[in-house]
């Protein structure tokens, strides 16, 4: 199995982001997704910057993929989307059907992203026909549901599974981080930059519940399939996606790489991940349970 680093979901200062990808260029990861997928107001890096980073990563032997914004609302969002779709030097990940339309029109292969709602073979076959060379399983999908899809998977289509990180669970027109400061989205003062791994919300019993990341809502817990590597492999999964966090992402990649290579036992990998993780782990979705559950191996 290959390792992918998912698109950065948080808003980090420009220099931090550039430094981050300098480090990633040296890390043992095969595929790197780039671009702003969450909020159109975030502008520390723009498409030309992402293309530069893609070039840097490609030169280091990685497959760089430009990911499209997930929630498209305005004409200016569409303008950015069209520019990305015309960027022929790199593979693109389509995160809504408008992006699929544009990429299919330009007859370019693309990655069908995790928010396209691929739940059955008919939809998967249609995307493959339109040019998808890879698809990313919806985060809420279980091992059993995946097995059904894998059985009828079109030839040559790669399967990628979100395997580590706070789960991107929902998108809204509303910015919840701005709302926390009683600010409107149009005047958000970029408060999300103060939360490099999102803003945790807890129940009134102090239990971690969700994480606010601008217009995106994530899990409080970190989805972690390190204990399910064998099952993922047996399911014919080609690529595991790790989601960037502000600290320790290179170590995270190293741990998964060592585990995949059989150089590190599951228990050791798990305890090392516990040290660098930003919250406790969960793996329920894979087991067909509530996502926040942690099912013992």
């Amino acid at each position: 199995m290959k390792l992918a680093l998912g698109p950065p979901l948080y808003y980090w200062p420009r220099q931090q982001m550039l430094d981050f990808y300098e480090t990633i260029a040296e890390a043992p990861v095969d595929v790197v997704y780039l671009g702003e997928t969450v909020c159109s107001r975030r502008h520390e890096l723009r498409l030309p910057d992402w293309i530069d980073i893609a070039g840097l990563l490609a030169a280091a032997g990685k497959q760089a993929v430009l990911a499209t914004q997930t929630l498209i609302e305005s004409e200016s969002d569409l303008k950015t989307l069209r520019k990305l779709a015309e960027e022929k030097a790199f593979l693109a990940e389509a995160n809504d059907m408008g992006a699929v339309r544009l990429l299919a029109e330009s007859r370019r292969p693309f990655v069908a992203g995790p928010f396209l709602n691929v739940y059955n073979g008919a939809t998967l076959a249609m995307l493959a026909r339109l040019g998808a060379s890879r698809w990313v399983m919806p985060v809420e999908m279980s091992r059993e549901a995946l097995a059904g899809l894998q059985a009828s998977r079109p030839a040559g289509l790669e399967t990628e599974v979100f395997a580590y990180g706070r789960l991107p669970l929902a998108f809204s027109a509303r910015c919840f981080t701005a709302r926390h400061y009683n600010l409107q989205k149009d005047d958000c003062q970029f408060k999300c930059m103060e939360y490099p791994d999102g803003l945790l919300i807890r129940t009134r019993e102090k239990e971690g519940f969700l994480t606010l990341n601008g217009i995106q809502t994530q899990s409080a817990r970190v989805y972690n399939l390190i204990g399910e590597i064998g099952e993922l492999r047996a399911s014919g999964v080609d690529i595991l996606r790790l989601s960037p966090q502000s600290q320790h992402t290179p170590e995270l990649i190293d741990i998964f790489r060592a585990r995949l290579a059989g150089e590190m036992a599951t228990e050791e990998a798990r305890s090392r991940l516990d040290v660098i993780g930003i919250a406790e782990s969960c793996n329920g979705f894979w087991h067909g349970k509530p996502g926040l559950d942690q099912i013992a191996a």
Partner: peptide, 21 residues
């Protein structure tokens, strides 16, 4: 719905069942 319909797995995260499936 405050979330984009079809793009919300919050209920699945807490209860195992969501609108999509």
């Amino acid at each position: 719905c405050v979330m984009v319909e079809g793009r919300c797995a919050l209920s699945a995260y807490v209860t195992g069942e969501s609108p999509n499936t």
